[in-house]
Design a protein around this nucleic acid. Structure first.
Lengths: 147, 147
DNA sequence: TATTGTTATACTCTATAACTATA
DNA sequence: TATAGTTATAGAGTATAACAATA
């Protein structure tokens, strides 16, 4: 039935919403907002970055990145360092405090995954991940057709 | 490995992000915003509702609902009807145009689910959904412990 | 001429607090 | 006294467009 398929999608979204709710806890504890945490997350993965590359990675306008970085500078999580090769650009760089927050973020994420999935049998988890991979690939194909 | 578990969680979030991207298409086509679409979605599920119940259902403040409903009234998707039994309250009610948008929303959601999951074998889909159910339940238990 | 980031402007979402009308 | 919704005020995220400095 088409209903089962809709239900599967609903549950994926439900779980994602719950994870988002868990992020709210992190927001309260850190005093950061979701958008700024996202910036730190990207910096953790990519290292010091220009604002242009952050805008591209986050999928927002460069103007928006200016504001997000302003906030993170004010809270002491990042600093704007001169780009060594391009005097127009800056390298948004985590401070020690920012590095600590990024570590907490990564640890919190891994801890959540552990709690959610550690008691799922390996075979079931394999099917679960395979299905997700398939679905994500299918989606990418759909998006190419309808840009 | 803990890495597999984190990867599973990442993929769930990745798929949810892709679905969100698909929602952006709906936003552009309808001229609505995510928050207002969410209001219509709730109205579609619950029928005409007071603003208080919308606030509760959406998890936002009553003041915020005033603004969202103002926008939907301006765009002709809902109207504020008098509550038959309580003169303080209004019943936010979809107009014909709002009803049409809700139908499109439901159809688009079902269509997406169809496209994503229709070629997943029934047994795999069953494991997938079972794992999601387990994880959602696990999460609910975690949230009770840490409110 | 193209790119990086900022200033200018505007809209939406969100919240709390105080207020009005009703229950 | 309590509840439904609005006005008042404020902050954050988002966007486009115009501009500066630099490439």
């Amino acid at each position: 039935m088409s209903n089962d398929l809709t239900s599967a999608l609903d549950k994926v979204l439900h779980l994602a919403a719950l994870v988002s709710a868990d992020m709210n806890r992190f927001e309260r504890e850190s005093g950061l907002t979701a958008a700024r945490i996202h910036v730190l997350w990207v910096l953790g993965a990519a290292g010091p970055s220009t604002q242009q590359s952050l805008a591209s990675e986050l999928g927002v306008s460069p103007r928006n990145v200016t504001g997000l970085v302003d906030g993170l500078v004010a809270s002491g999580h990042v600093s704007r360092e001169p780009h060594p090769a391009d005097r127009r650009a800056v390298l948004v760089t985590p401070t020690p405090r920012g590095e600590a927050t990024i570590r907490e973020l990564v640890a919190s994420h891994a801890d959540l995954a552990q709690r959610l999935f550690s008691d799922v049998p390996a075979e079931r988890l394999a099917v679960f991940v395979t299905t997700l991979d398939h679905t994500i690939t299918t989606f990418a194909r759909l998006m190419e057709d309808t840009p």
